[in-house]
Write a protein that binds this DNA or RNA. Structure first.
Lengths: 355, 355
DNA sequence: AGCGCTATCGCTAGCGCTAACAACAGTCTC
DNA sequence: GAGACTGTTGTTAGCGCTAGCGATAGCGCT
């Protein structure tokens, strides 16, 4: 059987086949052998069943279930240069409005066969860069990030990724690519306006604006501007520093605000979580809300309307942001162009009992 | 140069090289060329820098940053048959104690170079199977699932995955593999015991136990047993059906409980979210809690201790579950054996003002 | 000098899949 | 009946990386 050695040509030394750690799982070829077709045909059945004949499809599908085939997406990604995944980078996922955005985003993209992987930055910009870098190793077909302010390193990575990017939950005159958001500054200013209309004059802003939450910092800017324009008085602000976004921190912020500005007649927080903690502390201490002190939050969590008194807050279309982001990203991933790549989804001051 | 054609063998027609969509990104070979070494050496620098000489390492690392190389993990997975990822399957991620578990799990594993991807089942068992299937396509090195009751299809997939699996947040005499949890039934029984000690006799259980939340169903079982043993009376239960786990649903459950069992002197809910909604509704309506009606939740969310009156609940070591799961999984992924593969982390009834 | 050892680096052959063709049968057109 | 076209399947050559060697140089020892 073995053909003669061609004279003059030195035969390569006989190699025993390398042993590789045998993969335990069923491959396309296994299914192909079982169905009596080529691997390519099985691949077609998996990805686009209508591209093969009825008879073949039935046979392959039977083999597919019989063998319990699970496609190896790493191999698929490598061969096709498409990962069918989208990465989302959010500051925090638990107990947060970002969860609604991510959920809507995820659902909309899942309907088109995309998987989403979510990374949290814990409000630390340098961590954002690290997480982004490790995510890019999976070669996502698109990216969603929360916020419009990024480190130079992050901007470089986003640019070099070569895929569509949506920035969300903020507004910018100079976005990286796509943008679905609203002006945090305008929203905070609208809240100040609401409080002023309700007769408040000594409004304190309490947030976590110095330690890596650019949205809170933007809201602070809006507060500053509105206080200057509407009241002409000095701003009054307290900051939670690096404390986590919890109700406990909200109580601490309230104490800080009342200590530093004892004559405050309103405190507006950079998050409903803070405001909810402060509100319950007031109820417990017998402080009359809104009689003595008005309180307002940001985000319109479900909790806000259930609290007694119900919490005034700024509603942001979190779900809409997720849906719209998915829509724009899908268009771009299909290779089409997006006519209006920057979308302002707005906000809404929801006046309730706490003011 | 071209060797003569062997007679009788027809030469294959000359092919022009196939064009593949040129990948835009920097590869190992690009870096290798820039550093004047082989691709293999660059790979070594990336994965285990100490395995090359100081001089070479410095040169390669310079090339690495100069080119902006980002490794292609799909190719790495394929070649090494290891994905350095772990998949986690939870019912819901937002506003939930599972978020704490996932966060702790994720942090512990990230320290060892693993990435976690999280899938949510929305409390739909059939969805669990689907999500699991698509996750297995990424060939995770380990799996975490919430719960110990699974569909036959899920069990098959878990078994066939060939990687370590941790079940969490439940207890079972017959786990798939590893287990880090506690008995939901015992926890619910302990809550009944607590309520009985506080003098309650007409205790109603309100939950979402018929539609895909096995934990709630287990808690219901524990309630049944405890009511039989301690009170000898008929169980009183109301069910939310497929409604989402929200505070709104909690209010609806309260109404249902009071309509069906108007003489209830205590309502225990299968989640703090439900209990919080119900509690605030009582406050708003002027129902005396705990004077007229005692309310209890499950999970010990941060909210529970801030509410007025503070909510009695069952504290579960969510963070510990995540940490311990990561620990056991890491041991198994290293190839070592776990001495005690099933760990009961316990629970704790936290008595507060609402009872 | 000759031997065995270690440290360092390169070469080769895949991992499982899909893009880009090629091959062929059947259908339609003039 | 030749030519063009369509639908279906197979063949080939990678995608970017790493396992498993092999090759080489430098070292200490006999």
């Amino acid at each position: 059987m073995t053909p003669d050695i061609v004279s003059g040509v030195t035969q390569p030394p006989p190699r025993r086949p390398r042993k590789r750690s045998a993969t335990r799982s069923v491959t396309l070829s296994d299914v192909a052998a079982a169905a009596g077709v080529s691997a390519q045909t099985v691949s077609r059945v998996v990805r686009d069943p209508m591209s093969v004949s009825d008879e073949t499809r039935a046979r392959v599908q039977a083999a597919l279930t019989a063998t319990g085939y699970v496609p190896n997406l790493a191999a698929s990604n490598l061969a096709s240069n498409r990962s069918r995944t989208v990465a989302a980078l959010v500051p925090q996922i638990n107990a947060s409005v970002f969860a609604d955005t991510v959920h809507a985003f995820s659902t909309a993209l899942a309907a088109h066969g995309y998987q989403i992987f979510v990374g949290t930055t814990d409000y630390r910009p340098e961590h954002e860069e690290e997480v982004l870098r490790s995510f890019l190793g999976r070669r996502p077909d698109g990216l969603l990030v929360v916020g419009t302010r990024h480190t130079p390193g992050t901007l470089t990575l986003l640019g070099a990724a070569g895929v569509p990017v949506v920035e969300t939950w903020g507004w910018s005159e100079d976005p990286v690519d796509l943008l679905v958001g609203f002006s945090n500054a305008a929203a905070a200013a609208a809240m100040v306006d609401h409080l002023v209309r309700r007769g408040r004059r000594r409004i304190t802003f309490a947030g976590r604006h110095t330690s890596g939450d650019p949205r809170a910092a933007e809201r602070l800017d809006g507060y500053h501007g509105a206080v200057r324009d509407l009241l002409g008085s000095e701003p009054r602000t307290v900051d939670a520093g690096p404390e986590p976004v919890t109700m406990d921190t909200g109580v601490a912020l309230l104490d800080l605000a009342l200590e530093r500005y004892p004559d405050s007649d309103a405190v507006m927080f950079s998050s409903d979580v803070f405001a909810a903690g402060a509100l319950q502390a007031c109820v417990r201490r017998g402080v009359d809300v809104p009689g003595t002190l008005a309180l307002a939050g940001f985000g319109d969590f479900e909790l806000a309307r259930h609290l007694v008194p119900a919490l005034t807050t700024v509603a942001v279309p979190s779900v809409r942001i997720g849906e719209l982001s998915a829509e724009l990203l899908l268009t771009r991933m299909r290779g089409a162009t997006v006519d209006v790549p920057h979308r302002d989804v707005g906000y809404r001051v929801v006046a309730r009992e706490s003011t």
